[in-house]
């Protein structure tokens, strides 16, 4: 497997490989999201308790799930970058972090917009919302550290270390926030115990989750390609690709 992976540690090969994937990813993401959200918004029956407000679930749950998934992915990339010194893995941190931050932001905002009609408040110091907010801060920290260094290599390595420190802390933060929440307030929020969903609701939800996965993959692919170009800007192949003209070798 390593022998197969090795060429993709080089910028040019991985750029072109990702370029082959990108159109398929984008097209399938758009298609699946269109089906999933259309199904969820128009065809799925209203919830017997929450009426039509539950339709926010079709973007809230996928974005919340993926915001955590992308952090795990970023931490794995960070580990690979630190252990095997693969530069593509270093760059993928810069590609994943902004996408993950936007997903976290979406899950927070849709959560707030769902919370207002259901719980009567935009923001509740609910354990999940709190740990999601902290996740957003962690993403922003990684991003800020990555871009703080003028030498990109140092920035990428520092951000990898931070991502790994974060991933050790995430379970601790998650669990302690749950514990804190159960200590500080009673079960005001759990009036909203998870009802078993009928298939007319969870099938479009699964479609949406799958669509968000494809969309996240497409975004990360696009950003990773840009990051490769940015890092290898001085290389002749990038010059040839972006300027078109044959650059004189010196």
């Amino acid at each position: 497997m390593w022998r197969w992976l090795h060429p993709y540690a080089k910028g040019e090969a991985s750029y072109h490989l990702l370029g082959r994937w990108l159109p398929w990813l984008t097209a399938s993401a758009l298609l699946v999201l269109l089906i999933g959200i259309g199904w969820g918004l128009v065809f799925a029956p209203p919830d017997y308790q929450q009426g039509d407000s539950y339709r926010i679930i079709f973007i809230h749950v996928p974005s919340a799930m993926l915001s955590m998934g992308t952090y795990t992915g970023m931490a794995i990339a960070a580990l690979v970058a630190l252990v095997w010194q693969i530069r593509t893995a270093e760059w993928s941190i810069a590609a994943i972090a902004p996408v993950g931050a936007v997903l976290t932001f979406i899950s927070l905002l849709t959560g707030a917009a769902w919370g207002k009609p259901m719980w009567g408040t935009w923001w509740e110091w609910d354990a999940r919302m709190t740990s999601q907010l902290i996740l957003l801060f962690l993403y922003l920290g990684v991003l800020a550290l990555y871009h703080a260094f003028s030498d990109n290599r140092t920035g990428a390595k520092a951000a990898s270390i931070l991502a790994l420190v974060g991933v050790v802390n995430i379970p601790i933060i998650h669990f302690s926030v749950y514990w804190w929440n159960s200590l500080h307030q009673g079960a005001t929020i759990t009036k909203f115990a998870k009802p078993s969903m009928p298939p007319e609701m969870y099938i479009p939800l699964f479609v949406c989750i799958f669509g968000f996965m494809l969309m996240t993959a497409a975004f990360i692919t696009q950003r990773l390609r840009h990051e490769i170009l940015r890092q290898e800007l001085h290389r002749p192949w990038v010059q040839q690709l972006l300027v078109g003209a044959k650059v004189k070798e010196q």
Binding site: A144, L145, I172
Partner: peptide
């Protein structure tokens, strides 16, 4: 920005 989120469990307990 990097450190404060990581201090939250400590603060809670």
């Amino acid at each position: 920005l990097l450190l404060l989120p990581l201090f939250i469990p400590l603060l809670i307990f």
